[in-house]
């Protein structure tokens, strides 16, 4: 999955997703609608679409969407 495709999937997990709001360097924790349930949805999506199991701490530690994407790239190698 490319970074651009990943951003769309990522944005889709938010309840009021306006995809144009989401960029690679967006700090997703500042976006309205970010909460623990969104985190669960995102971890689930990454498990299904990327085959990578993230932990809650991985998301907490990441600053923006690109960093999450990079964790996935590392783990899937």
């Amino acid at each position: 999955m490319t970074l651009e495709e990943f951003i769309v999937e990522f944005a889709n997990q938010f309840e009021d997703a306006d995809v144009s709001q989401f960029k690679a360097d967006t700090n997703f924790k500042d976006i309205e609608g970010w909460d623990s349930l969104t985190a669960v949805s995102i971890i689930n999506m990454i498990g299904k679409k990327c085959g990578v199991r993230l932990l809650g701490g991985d998301l907490r530690g990441a600053g923006n969407i690109r960093e999450v994407y990079e964790i996935i790239q590392q783990r899937s190698q």
Binding site: S36, L37, V40, I43, N44, G47, K48, R53
Partner: peptide, 16 residues
């Protein structure tokens, strides 16, 4: 059942 959804959110039915 998804172990990650269970551990992260205490939900016992997977999103699927």
């Amino acid at each position: 059942f998804s172990t990650s959804t269970y551990i992260n959110a205490d939900m016992l039915i997977s999103i699927e």
